[in-house]
Each structure stands twice: as structure tokens, then as C-alpha cells.
Amino acid sequence: MKTSDFDFDLPERLIAQHPLLKRDESRLLIVDRKTHDLTHTTFKSILDELTSNDVLVVNNTKVMPARLIGQKEETDALIELLLLEQQNGLWDALVKPGRRVKVGTIVSFGNGILKAKCVFEKEEGIKSFEMIHEGIFYEVLDQLGQMPLPPYIHERLEEKDRYQTVYAKEIGSAAAPTAGLHFTKDLLLSIKAKNIPIIEVTLHVGLGTFRPTTVENLQDHHMHEEAYSIGEKEAEMLNDAIKMNKRIVAVGTTTVRTLESNFKDNQFHSGASRTSIFIYPGYQFKTIGALITNFHLPKSTLIMLVSAFSNRDLILKAYNEAVENEYRFFSFGDAMFIK
């Protein structure tokens, strides 16, 4: 299979530039994998699609204000860092413009409140930095950093929390798990009232999720590792769901990748790990029975994962119908429920 097999035409006007006033009033396209029926509704009606035989699994990662704009100490040249993750005391980041930052370069932010010293260069444009600061790093980052909105969003985000899910807890993501942006606290309470457990897992979104595919042959695409974890209680709840033959409804592709990576020897395991799983058509799913997801970029690993869960022709048919019906696309856009 090739990357071009997952291309589709999308008018630029349909790329959502801002979130809706009310999270759960976005549109929802329901895709039935058995009948191939497509149903148009609103997101709050997801409640009608869920039963007491379901468990809902969400990714509770929290987005860092990961975009930092500072100055190179030697020349005052403007440098932008997009923090990805911390490993062994150093921070991996994408740098713009990368050619201006070499090993030993120091970039200063907030008149020196924070300094980033480039320690070494990795593959694919990633560089590792030692962060020099006083106090708690995340407090400094909250003061100086900006929310890392995707490059196709050109409008200013008025409320930073709108790029967070209402259940975001564990800070560490460089992008939001956007399928979860549609849920409100009231909607979650209504789901619990139907005796549907809501299970939280964590995958910190990084390059593995949002970096585009640049090769035509899928087997040549390199997925970057992302950190994930599942708590002891949550692993037990998931294993109970498997034993009781309940339907696991995953909220977002990051949740899918967490569950599918973790499930080994016919059970879920608690603890922290890392995954570089790449799911595309031909993959045999082991855990999930339904998926809530946004509309993804053409030729992205995310539309490939969604196609693997359904099938490519049905997903492209659904995407084309969404375009015809003027759905809003990508991070702040509308949603799909694939059952």
C-alpha cells in the first residue's frame, strides 16, 4: 500500500481555524462498518450510541505550552523551539530555523529567564537541549511558552484551555489528542450515569502522531516513539472489560495506539512504556470495538489507522461526504464515530 492511496481533496475553507463555542455541538458522522451506512448528527448524540456494554477509554495527557520563541545569544537571531519530550534530563525539540542552531548554541527566552543549550543533534531535525533556569521548569514554561497549535491554524486561540480536553491531567504532550476536545464535563457525567465506565490512559503526543509521511511506500515510514502509561486500576478495569466481552470504545487514535501496544498475552499490563506502533490497513486489531476520532490530514498515519479499523474505501467515502456537507476538518473540526 502507498501513501498516495490515502489522499483526498479538501478545500482550505473547511480547515477549522477555531473551536466551536460549545464543545459538544460539533457535528458527528457515524460510520457503520457492517452496513456502510453514514449518519449525520451532532456530537452530544454520542450518548445514544453508547450502552452499558461499553467502556470508554480516553487519553488524559495534557498539552505543554511547548512553543518557545527566543534569541540566539551570539547573534540575537530569532529561534523557535517546539519541545517534544524530556529524556535523561534533556529536552528533545524541533528547531526553526534548524541551520542556525549547532551543538553548543545557547538560545535565550524571556531575557534569560530560560536558556536552552544545544547538546547534540539527532536524526530528522531533532536536537537535544539542556534547559538552564531557576525554579520549577513547568512553571517557567507556562510563563514563556505558547500552545503548540498545528501550522494549518492561522487564527489566534483566545482561550488556551480550548486546546486541552476537559479531563487533561498528565502534562507532557506537544499536541492535543483532539478527538477528546468534543467532550464536556456534563456529557461525561451523562455517560457515567448510563453505567459506562470511563477509563483514563496516558500517551504523550509527539512526532509519532503528528509528523507527516514523506515516503510513498508505507513500509519505509519511520514512526517516532511516544511514551505511554496505564495505571494498575485502569489495567484491571480493561481486563475485566475483555473478560466480560464488553465493547472498548477508544477516544482518539492515541488511545488506540496505547491499547494496541500494551495488550500482550491476552491482557493489559499496568506501568509505563514506549511505543512506535504504526497501524495501517492489514493490521489485526486486538482490543477496540469502536472509535471516536476527528477528520485527519490527507496521507497522514492517522487516516491510515482509521482506514485499518474500517476500510480505506469506506473511510474515503465518508471523508468525501463530509466535504460535500461542509464538515469542519482537523484539530478544531468535527468528529466521526466508527462502530
Rank of each mutant, 00 (worst) to 15 (best):
Q146T: 13
E200Y: 09
I15T: 05
I279G: 03
S128Q: 14
P281H: 05
R27F: 02
A308Y: 02
R100H: 00
D24W: 01
F210W: 10
N239A: 06
I199S: 01
T214E: 13
Q267A: 14
L50V: 10
H269Y: 08
I106Q: 12
E234C: 04
K339F: 12
T202H: 09
N245G: 04
H133F: 15
R247E: 11
N311W: 03
L149A: 00
L149M: 10
S307G: 10
H154Y: 00
H40T: 02
C118H: 06
E236Y: 09
A290S: 12
V205K: 00
A16I: 00
G125S: 11
I338S: 02
P151N: 05
L302H: 06
V95W: 02
G145M: 06
L187W: 05
T178L: 04
L291E: 00
F109Y: 09
I126D: 08
I248M: 01
M336E: 01
V215H: 08
G208Q: 05
V101T: 10
P151G: 02
L259I: 15
F295L: 07
D142H: 13
L14C: 04
L38D: 07
K22M: 03
V103D: 12
V63Q: 14
E123I: 05
E123L: 09
N266C: 13
G110I: 12
K22R: 14
V63H: 10
P298Q: 06
S310Y: 12
K160M: 11
I69W: 01
L238P: 09
D9Y: 10
D24V: 05
L189C: 10
Q86C: 13
S173M: 08
K102T: 08
K169R: 14
A335W: 00
S108W: 04
I292A: 00
K185T: 15
H222P: 03
E123M: 12
L188K: 03
G89Y: 09
